[in-house]
Design a binder for these strands. Structure first.
Lengths: 197, 197
DNA sequence: CCTCTATCGCAAGGCGTCTTGCCTTTGGGG
DNA sequence: CCCCAAAGGCAAGACGCCTTGCGATAGAGG
C-alpha cells in the first residue's frame, strides 16, 4: 500500500524510467527484427541490460510488454481528411488505414489487439477505435451538410462497412489489399449511403 | 521415403486410427472446457491414454492439433439460402455466419484461422472461404437474374462488404452482434448494389 | 501365418515462461 | 544530507512445450 510519503510520479530520469526505456526499446527492436513469435523475455532482458525478473515483475507477460512497447512508439492520432468531397475523404480514410496496417508497428498492433488475454487493455482498445471512429464520423457529418449522403444514417455502421472488408482481407482471407479493392469498397459504400434521387 | 511395400492407407480401425480418434476427442473436450489457452499437450495425452511424444510426433504443435480437431468436428458445408428475394437471402447468409461464429467450435475455428504460424493450412483456409464465397455468389447470381442488383459487380467485393463488418466487430471493436446491426449491414449493402433507377 | 516397417511408448533433456524469497540499490521527501 | 520504501538484482525452481534416440508392438502385405 502506498504510504503518505509515496510519490505518485517518480523522477522521469530515475532508475525506473531508465529501465523502462531500455526494455521498451529492446522490445521494439526484437519485434521489428523477428515479429511477435521471436519475442523472448530472456533475450530482451539481455539486450536491455536488465534482469529477467525485473521484466516479469513489471510487465507480467511478453504480450503486455509488446503492447506497451508498440503503443509507446505509435502515434495513434488519426488525421481527419477534408478534401471537400465525401468520396475522396472516405478514400483517404481507407487508404490511410491500409497504410498503417502495412507499417511494421501497425501490423504488430493489430495482431496484439486480436489476443483475448489482455484484460488490462480493454480501455486502450476502446480509445483506439473511438479515435478512429471520430475521424470517420467527422467526414460523414461534413458530407451530410453537403447533401452527399442520406441523413440519419448510423455513422458507426457506415464506418464499419468501410473498414470491415479491409480487415477481413488482412486477417481472414489474406488476399492482397490493392488499390482496385480499396476503391471498390469506397464506391460500394458511397452507393450504399447516397441520397435517394 | 515410402518403400514399394508402403501402404498408402492404413486400416481405419487400426492402432493409429484409434490413437488419432482418442487424441482428437480429448482435444475437443479440453477446447470446449477451457478454450485455446487451456490446451496442454500433457493434459490431452493423459486424457487420451496416449504418450505425449506420440502427440508431438504426429501434430507438432498444439495449434496444429487444435485446428485438425476442430476441422474434424466441423461441418463446413454452407447452406445456400433461396428465399426468392435478395434481401432475405443476404440476411440469411449473414445471420447464418453470425450463428456459426457464436458456436463454440465456430469461434475456435475463427481464432485458429487468425494465427500466422500455420503454414500447413493455407489450403484449408482457402477452401473454407471459397466455399463460403460460392454460397454468396450463388445468391448474388440469382438476384442478378431477378434484376435486384446492378450486373457486373465484383461478387467477391460484395461478399466482403457483407461479412466484413461482422468480423470487424467480433475481432476488433468487440461490440455485440445484435439483430439491428446485422440488418443494418444488409440494408447498406443492398442500397450499395441496387440498380440505378 | 510370418515378416517387416510405421507408429507408439518410454526416458532423458534442452529451452522459455513465469514465480518467489531475499538482499541490494536508488532516489524522492523530509 | 539522511532515511526508507519502491524498484531492481539475484538465485532457485516449478511447469509446459518440444525434441530425440532407442526399444517394443501392432497391423498390412506377402
Amino acid at each position: 500500500m502506498p504510504g503518505p510519503r509515496s510519490p505518485r510520479v517518480r523522477r522521469p530520469g530515475g532508475r525506473s524510467a531508465r529501465v523502462r526505456a531500455a526494455v521498451l526499446a529492446a522490445t521494439v527492436d526484437v519485434l521489428l527484427e523477428g515479429g511477435l513469435d521471436a519475442l523472448s523475455i530472456g533475450d530482451i532482458a539481455r539486450r536491455a541490460g536488465v534482469h529477467e525478473s525485473s521484466v516479469y515483475r513489471r510487465w507480467g507477460t511478453r504480450f503486455n510488454l509488446a503492447l506497451e512497447a508498440v503503443l509507446d512508439r505509435t502515434r495513434t492520432e488519426v488525421p481527419v481528411p477534408d478534401t471537400g468531397a465525401l468520396r475522396t475523404d472516405l478514400a483517404a480514410l481507407l487508404h490511410g488505414t491500409a497504410a498503417f496496417v502495412r507499417t511494421p508497428l501497425g501490423e504488430l498492433l493489430l495482431r496484439l489487439a486480436l489476443r483475448e488475454d489482455m484484460a488490462d487493455y480493454e480501455g486502450a482498445r476502446e480509445r483506439f477505435w473511438d479515435h478512429r471512429f471520430a475521424a470517420g464520423s467527422a467526414v460523414l457529418a461534413r458530407g451530410e451538410e453537403r447533401g452527399e449522403l442520406r441523413p440519419g444514417l448510423d455513422h458507426r455502421l457506415v464506418f464499419e462497412a468501410l473498414m470491415g472488408p479491409l480487415h477481413m482481407r488482412l486477417l481472414l482471407t489474406r488476399e492482397p489489399l490493392d488499390e482496385t479493392f480499396l476503391d471498390g469498397v469506397v464506391e460500394l459504400v458511397l452507393a450504399g449511403i447516397a441520397p435517394h434521387e
